[in-house]
């Protein structure tokens, strides 16, 4: 199967996920073009995070198909570690390795998995840290940094693997309001550079400004999707209206 110009970069088809008898994703369909920024919003428990985690195979899927760059991820023939190298992920709680310096947080996996020489991966790490504004923190340990700084390190760490798509799972939810901006700015730069991104967030201004598509999820299904301004200003479903009335969109 080859990726023609019309084929989506990432295609999620009828994704179903259950925890025991509790079905958290009830048949989600989502197509993502290369370079597209898809922002996913919705109430807690709507299945947003579970959906993201299916894309890098952290979340087993009960039924459905995930096609990334023309390859069926659930065929059982894919090396899960190889898939994850292509799909970068950033988490709400940063999850940096506490026992390693910022520099080693970035270089550990490229050196182990990509067999990259230390000098090369350190050079790339310094470059990426400069890009996220943390060139002076190479020798610091994660717990010596603020939440915003840790999250920017986590983004740089994910970028070290040269991912083709990036997943952001509520990456600003644990941050003090004044630190949110510095993380969102890094994400904006990344979006402008053409990175394909799936972003679960409560930051409606980010959705409006950076998103190409806005997806509203509730109760394990996609209720509504479209251009961010359309969905935010003229929601066509009651459920969406109800959710947005509680936000500062």
């Amino acid at each position: 199967m080859s990726t023609g110009p019309a084929a989506p970069f990432l295609d999620l088809r009828d994704i179903r996920v259950s925890y025991g008898s509790n079905e958290v994703l009830k048949g989600v369909n989502l197509s993502v073009r290369q370079g597209e920024v898809v922002v996913i919003i919705g109430p807690s428990g709507s299945g947003k995070s579970s959906l993201l985690r299916t894309v890098n195979m952290l979340q087993p899927v009960t039924r459905g198909e995930i096609v990334l760059e023309g390859e069926d991820l659930l065929s059982g023939k894919q090396d899960v570690n190889k898939v994850r190298q292509r799909v970068g992920m950033v988490f709400q709680h940063y999850n940096l390795f506490p026992h390693l310096t910022v520099l080693k947080n970035l270089t550990l996996v490229p050196r182990r998995v990509l067999r990259e020489p230390t000098a090369e991966s350190e050079a790339r790490a310094r470059e990426l840290l400069a890009k996220v504004g943390l060139a002076d923190k190479v020798a610091s340990y994660p717990d010596q940094l603020s939440g915003g700084q840790q999250q920017r390190v986590a983004i740089a760490r994910a970028l070290m693997m040269r991912p083709h798509v990036m997943l952001f799972d509520e990456v600003t939810s644990a941050l003090d309001p004044q630190l949110v901006r510095e993380v969102l700015n890094v994400m904006k730069d990344l979006a402008r550079s053409g990175m394909t991104m799936l972003v679960v967030t409560h930051e409606m201004s980010f959705a409006r400004e950076v998103g190409d598509t806005l997806v509203f999820m509730a109760d394990g299904v996609v209720v509504e999707k479209g251009h961010p301004a359309d969905v935010l200003d003229r929601p066509s479903h009651d459920r969406t209206r109800q959710f947005l009335s509680h936000t500062d969109a």
Binding site: N56, L58, N81, K82, V83, R84, Q85, G88, M89, F91, H93, N95, L96, F97, P98, L108, V109, R112, V113, A154, R157, A158, M161
Partner: peptide
């Protein structure tokens, strides 16, 4: 912490290597 282990796996680090390094 489980999150750190998940982060390593999400980067594509194999399970045993994650055990050794994290």
């Amino acid at each position: 912490p489980k999150g750190e282990v998940t982060a390593a796996r999400a980067l594509g680090l194999p399970a045993f290597q994650t055990f050794l390094d994290v």
